[in-house]
Design a binder for these strands. Structure first.
Lengths: 333, 333
DNA sequence: CTGAAAGCGCTTACAG
DNA sequence: CTGAAAGCGCTTACAG
């Protein structure tokens, strides 16, 4: 049925060893022999069994990817970046999620022991950071994509959050907005503190230190962003801009401002963070700090592959630059 | 280093055969023996090597998934449905994309020959339908998730497009909208024709046959949806509703109507199709025909798994019911 | 109920 | 430059 290396060897009149050698372009093989074997391989449409190769070689040429959820707005971009890079290198990508609690985590770790993949790209592990650290200590190459700004003992890629916050501040200042409301994410996240620092630092330097009453913690959701704005307005606070720590919260803020009869951006300019696909489709379209999600995926994958193939001293971590995407929610028409 | 079945056998004082038997709960094993072996497995933290099992058994307990792109708005839901189902069954999920042309297709087909996975879930193959058909003919179990409404020779799951179109019509009619504009998708797609038929059928039955001038072909994009509305308005056409064949086009229509000074839903009600995540976040929030993307993923995965494990006569195809999600773009406040 | 042995399809020293 | 043989870690008739 299936064409095996033995078939190729027999038909080409050489040993399996020789076929293997031309397959892996390792060791010296006579030019004519190589050409002939190649021809037979081609003719038979022979492709080595990945299972057998993996078993014999002790590695699967497969990368694992663990994500908490596949339906988050920016996950598609990350995934695309990882898949493209991994495929390019001739590796496979085994996908796992850990959204069903202990159960899925257990299932996942057993896959690790099963040597189903050689290394792992993990995205923002919720409660699994300790587990990943343990796997890494036991020898599994791991690269983390972490928007939360934690800094584990193994390589990770993140966005330049502080710089992103600073850029948002500079953009608002260039529009003469001196009294911004900050709808922050959960303060336990390192990325949130970084965005806050970068933003506040620029305002302070410019002689407009943030009003502490205008820095509120929220939860990265649309509902949370809306609620924060409504609450502040209800307290009679005034502000001429909103810096939301992610786009969903910014979209919630947009709706709340509109409901309160405020015009965006005339009365209040709004800037988000992430640049998820729907940021360009809101009304008004949302100005935001772009996180290079796809590039983060590509980078993480490349770091992992470098580790697996032994080239390059991967070790280090990376923070990718962000950029402000200007749309109508800050500059009008 | 690695714990193998031989280690377990040695320490438990039994043969590898016996260990294998308790592992696979097949064949009769003495109760006490079984318990003892189980205990040793537990203690050693033994997990069978997936590669070796695959080689010996001739199957990998892995499912392949081929998608054209990971960044489409509804892809995350489909993927989540597939992954959940596949993981639940103890299978792995190998992810492939075919967005880089012939190159990635070639890479993918060689993975098929490599027996890296036992069966395939494919999403809306752009130009790869023929290739998939060939693989299927050669014996690869394939299930297609196809929103385009093609009906290949192998099992596929789709949404009930005709019924969805009819439901949209009934909803608009219940709101006394008798003169709808239809912003259709590309007419070469079966799903588009089905949505059109269902929609037009209900209107005709109700004594309000569609005005052919108000049925325009578009391209499923936001820009296309906006352009269609602008063009019709420019021609001086009047309509009291828009049925867009997907949400992106509906979002474009929303913006074009607003730009023209028309109120939604007072002057023109708008209904889309898909129910992508951002449908609930537009202003006004978009009424739309919900396609059960996650469920489509789950169903396709289940059909494939049934085929792989030999249970159930999978053969047939499935059309999953849609439902109208009513939001402000048709009913106001 | 249990085990020895062959086999899955490769790779890799080792020897020539 | 080339090949015979062992080995990767399992499963599965076959025999008892």
């Amino acid at each position: 049925m299936r064409v095996t290396i033995a078939d190729v060897a027999r038909i080409a009149g050489v040993s399996k060893t020789t076929v293997s050698r031309v397959l892996n372009t390792r060791g010296e093989v006579d030019h004519a022999t190589r050409a002939h074997v190649r021809e037979v391989i081609e003719r038979l449409g022979y492709v080595p069994s990945s299972g057998a190769v993996g078993l014999a070689r002790g590695s699967s040429r497969t990368v694992g990817m663990l994500v908490p959820s596949l339906t988050w707005p920016w996950m598609g971009e990350v995934l695309q970046g990882v898949v493209d890079t991994v495929e390019e290198a001739g590796f496979g990508l085994l996908l796992f999620t850990c959204n069903r609690g202990t159960d899925s985590v257990a299932r996942f770790t057993s896959q690790v022991s099963a040597r189903a993949f050689d290394g792992l790209v993990a995205v923002e592990p919720e409660d699994t950071l300790a587990m990943l650290a343990a796997l890494h200590r036991r020898g599994l190459p791991v690269v983390l994509i972490d928007d939360r700004g934690r800094h584990p003992e193994f390589p990770h890629v993140t966005a330049a959050n502080r710089e992103g916050g600073a850029a948002a501040a500079r953009h608002l200042l260039s529009l003469e907005r001196h009294r911004p409301l900050v709808v922050a994410g959960p303060l336990r996240f390192g990325c949130v503190r970084d965005r806050l620092d970068g933003f506040g630092g620029v305002y302070a330097e410019d002689g407009h230190p943030l009003d502490p009453a205008l820095v509120v913690e929220s939860d990265f959701t649309e509902a949370g962003g809306g609620a924060a704005v409504r609450r502040l307005l209800g307290e009679g606070r005034t502000f001429d801009a909103v810096f939301a720590h992610n786009d969903l919260a910014a979209i919630g803020a947009l709706a709340a401002l509109r409901a309160a009869g405020l015009r965006v951006p005339e009365d209040v300019a709004v800037i988000g963070f992430d640049d998820i696909p729907m940021a360009g489709l809101t009304h008004p379209a949302l100005t935001t700090v772009h996180q290079p999600m796809r590039k983060m995926g590509e980078t993480a994958a490349r770091m992992l592959l470098a580790q697996l193939t032994g080239e390059g001293l991967s070790g280090s971590s990376v923070a990718l630059p962000t950029s402000v995407v200007v749309r109508q929610s800050t500059v009008g028409f």
